[in-house]
Structure formats: C-alpha cells, structure tokens
Amino acid sequence: MTFGEQPAYLRVAGDLRNKIVNGSLPPHTRLPSQARIREEYGVSDTVALEARKVLMAEGLVEGRSGSGTYVRETPVPRRVARSGYRPTSGSTPFKQEQADETARGTWDSRSEQVEASSVIAERLGVRAGDRVMCTKYVYRDAGEAMMLSTSWEPLTVTGRTPVMLPEEGPLGGCGVVERMAAIDVIVDNVTEEVGARPGLAEELMALGGVPGHVVLVIQRTYFASGRPVETADVVVPADRYRIAYHLPVK
C-alpha cells in the first residue's frame, strides 16, 4: 500500500457508505452478504468482514439475529437546549431543557444513600466514603427514552432537611436552585463539561442503542459560594440528539 492509499476494507466500507447515504441502499434493506461483497469488490473474506464491522461501528447498519445485517433508519437529530437557569414558573427543569415546546417529557427516578467514590468526592469537595444522595433518572419524550442522568448531593448539605430526596417532599421534582434556596443555600454558579465516549452496555440498553454507539456526556456541577452542592452526569445518545447552548452575555 502506497502513502495515502486507503486499506481495502476502508475503500469497501466507503463505497457501501455512499450507497447508504445516497439512497441506493435505503433503510431496512439487507446489506450485501459477506460472500457477495467479496465477489463484487474482489476482496478476501477478512476484508469483507472488516468493512461490515466499520459500517456497524458507525451505526449505519445493525445485525438482526438469524436474519442478517440491515441498513438502519437514520434518525434526524433533535436539539436538547441548555440555556442556563430560569425560574420554573410551574414548568419542570426537564421541560425547560427540551427545545421543542410540544415535547411531552416524563421521567422515572430512584434515590438512595451511597458512599462517595473518589471521583465523586473530588467533584463535590467531600471525602471519599462520605454519604451522598445518589439519584438516577431516565428521561422520556413521548414515551421514548432520550436521556439518562445520575446526580449526587452531599448529605452534609441536604441531610435531614425537607429536600434531602430530590423527587419527594414539598419541592419534589423542582430544580436544584429552588430546592437549595428552600434550605437557605443560594446557588450562584454552574459548570458543564461536554465529552463523548462509547456508551456503556446498560446505558445503550436503556436508550435503545446498539453496542458501539457513542453517547454525549454532560458533567454538570452546581455551586453555592464556591461550594459544590450537586454534581451530575447527563448521558444523551449522540446519533439522535445535539446539545445546543444559548447563554446570556453579561
């Protein structure tokens, strides 16, 4: 192979990708078999197999047990808008984070006290092993799982208060800002870091993805006078959603 020349499996994958993009291989069409790819492109079984693996890793095709490999329906990405804190005025924080005003957002949640891992302890400014309230969420739009979130709050802040459980009590379901204000903790800053990684098996199962799919991870932390009072990991499937920021200039 000369400098700049693509490996054979990438050339085959590229040609098949173009056929998927231009509609020659429309959604739900069965991908040519390994034997047919080998014959059509004059390549080995190994090259044909690797080309199919590339398309599967890119999320363009999916395997169906006992049936073969098929072109996936390409979703049209929706926006998840993140525009900073706004008073809820009766609207849930989750509703505010959806760009489409007609979206029908619901969620399930489960809270439990756990010991802070070294990573979470560092993010919350507490000691590893300190007790924190961990809440796991599955967010849905019109019944479809669209986002996962795991939050941690130090019990040194919320323990034995009416807001100790984020989804229960008089302020259950309200945002962090409102809940903390109820116990005289004034949130004045929030940071978010966005990254991407392959989804974990349990995440993809919950979100309806396939192995190898990439997820966007938003690492968010709320602060009150420099003290972290909540940190969370928000997980969104990268092929179905885009994170859109609209931040005020002060």
Rank of each mutant, 00 (worst) to 15 (best):
T92A: 04
L10W: 13
R36Y: 15
Y139T: 12
A116V: 00
V43L: 05
G63A: 05
T135V: 07
A201E: 14
G63Q: 10
P26I: 09
E193V: 13
E122H: 13
V249T: 15
I183Y: 10
V234I: 10
A103Q: 04
K95C: 04
Q6K: 09
E167C: 12
V21A: 10
E193S: 11
T150I: 15
C174A: 15
A128T: 01
L10E: 12
E168Q: 13
S149C: 15
T88Y: 11
A57W: 01
V21P: 02
L200K: 09
T158D: 03
P237H: 05
K95P: 06
A238N: 02
R82N: 06
L124T: 00
V76Y: 13
G143R: 11
A142D: 10
S65G: 15
Y222D: 01
T69Y: 05
F3V: 03
Y222M: 01
V119P: 02
D239G: 06
T2V: 15
R160N: 13
L247Y: 06
P93R: 08
P211D: 08
R131C: 08
A145L: 06
R197N: 03
A201T: 09
L165Q: 15
P170V: 10
P162H: 08
L155T: 12
F223N: 07
F3N: 14
R240P: 13
E192S: 15
D15N: 08
L207C: 00
G173E: 07
M146C: 05
T191H: 06
K53L: 08
G63H: 09
R36T: 14
L171P: 00
K53I: 05
E62P: 12
E203K: 00
G90A: 01
G208F: 08
E203T: 02
A142R: 14
Y241M: 01
D141W: 14
M1V: 14
I183S: 05
P26F: 12
A13M: 05
E115S: 09
A145C: 02
